[in-house]
Amino acid sequence: MSEQTALADLEREIATPGGGMDGLRLVAAPFVPEVRLHLAEDAILWWARMEAAAGRSLPPPYWASVWAGGQALARHLLDHPELAAGRRVLDLASGSGLVAIAAALAGAERVTANDVDPYAVAAVTANARANRVELAVTGGDLLDGPVHADLLLAGDVLYDAGLAARVLPFLQRAADRGVEVLVGDPDRGHLPADRLDRVASYPVPTTEPSVDSPVRRVHVLRPR
């Protein structure tokens, strides 16, 4: 699916009135109320409806929920705007775009939001408009290339072992080349504790699917 098709689909969804559980709503992020996002009331139901309409499989809509790691990282940026102000920022696996939008609100010179899912690229575009910020939004896999940024942000990207095995070396290579790297992670079990230092810790309300607690302790970390 092209990014243009995904954006057209998402814009249609946003423009469609209705308050069903399988729809999208523009709401404030619970831990970062300065940012509003188009989120699904129930992402699984939204996904099922969209797949039925498309007649084919679609990527899981990670962008349609606001994840704890991203919320903590966005909160940290807005509470410490000097981290992003005047800098070139890359938000890896941006999802809804929450972290990228927070970086823009904190005064970044340029923010690039990246995600491999065309629907996520569309969601970031729509959410940037809703928050009146300007982002560069790109698709594609960046993990084998260099980082052209001063600050690299990765919120809740280490959610399985296979992905962590690719992301962690990418983050370390960037840090070794002088890029500041910040990771937001709710301790999903894929972090090498001996290679990251804790910068901050937050109790974050959880809204993502399949969680067993209303609050998660999330750490903001940087590579050593």
Rank of each mutant, 00 (worst) to 15 (best):
E11C: 01
D185R: 06
G86Q: 09
G18K: 01
H76N: 09
A48F: 12
V211S: 03
N127H: 05
Q4P: 02
G18A: 04
D115P: 05
L26K: 11
A164Y: 05
L77K: 07
V157N: 12
L143H: 12
D42S: 13
P60N: 02
P214T: 10
N127S: 03
R224F: 07
A175L: 02
V116L: 14
L163T: 08
H80P: 04
Y62M: 02
L135M: 10
N114W: 00
P59W: 01
A85L: 11
D187H: 13
D194M: 05
L196H: 01
P59C: 01
R12I: 09
D185N: 10
A102M: 11
A149P: 14
R173C: 02
G97T: 00
Y202E: 11
V204D: 03
G95H: 08
W47E: 07
P59T: 04
R49N: 11
R129W: 01
P169E: 03
A84F: 07
E208H: 07
R224C: 05
R56H: 08
R87C: 08
V124G: 08
N114E: 06
R222G: 03
R12T: 14
A200Q: 02
P205L: 12
D22L: 02
A123H: 07
A85Y: 09
T16A: 13
H76V: 09
V167G: 02
T138A: 14
L83H: 10
L37G: 12
A68V: 05
H148E: 15
D185T: 04
S201D: 06
G18S: 03
G189I: 09
L10C: 04
L143G: 03
A108E: 14
D141Y: 13
R173S: 00
Q172G: 01
D160S: 11
G155I: 14
A126R: 08
Q172P: 00
A126L: 07
V215D: 05
Q4C: 08
R36N: 13
L45I: 11
L196I: 08
V179W: 11
Y159E: 05
A193S: 06
M50Y: 03
V124A: 07
G97H: 04
R177C: 04
R75M: 13
D141Q: 12
L105H: 10
P186H: 12
V124M: 12
R166H: 07
A72N: 08
P118V: 00
Q4S: 15
D156W: 15
T207D: 03
